[in-house]
Amino acid sequence: MKTFLAWLLWLWLALVIVGAFFYAPVAEHFRVPGSSRIVFFHVPMAWTSFLAFIAAAVWSVMYLVRRNPRHDRSAGVAIQIGLLFGVLATVTGAVWAKIEWGAWWNWDPRQTSILASLLFYAAYLALRQSVEEPEKRARLAAAYALLGLVVTPFLFWIVPRITFSLHPDPVVNSSGKVEMDPRIQHVLYASGLGFAALFFWIHNLQCRLEALVERRAALKE
């Protein structure tokens, strides 16, 4: 069953890639229209990065309530993957920014937000590194993750107000304001789903890996 799902995932992602380059049309109003294809990867990565944070927060709450070490492991792994996807999103974003607006970094709201969240993920992982005892580490990390969760809405609120936006807002947030070609939407959402699934798949693998490492260490005693 698991292998079937894995194959399905790869097939799905392959289709997304094909769709990104062949099925979806180019967004005409960009300076370098071809570069718009990056949206199918850049945006879902950003989404997944935030998904990771939400997931980690949920697992943190579950840990604090149930004290099941598995939840703590899940939370930690989620943030790790969140950091990975976040970095990828930032990099792809910077590349796109360079192509489109001429500068790698512009302090526009999205870039600033994702940078702040990267800082947070890194801080969380640094905290995990600094505590030896598993039970203590789990407690402290969970508390910190939830503290971060509580603070995030404020970040979202203030960032747009202090930076102006270069981000193609209407296009990406197809809130019905500006037309986004339906085929672009298809591939975008498909990609989003694919990346989310990818997240859970990597998460599952990494959790099992870490569990094995822990068991081996315990057995050595």
């Binding site: 702040a116 800082l119 947070f120 890194a122 801080a123 640094a126 905290l127 600094s130 505590v131 030896e132 203590k136 402290l140 910190y144 503290l147 971060g148 603070v151 404020f154 970040l155 609120w157 203030i158």
Partner: peptide, 21 residues
């Protein structure tokens, strides 16, 4: 951080993202 190691640097690292807003 009081219960972790490397308390001084860790405090700055942890508090900044929280205090940023």
């Amino acid at each position: 951080i009081a219960q972790a190691r490397s308390k001084g640097t860790l405090f700055s690292v942890l508090s900044f993202p929280i205090l940023l807003p």
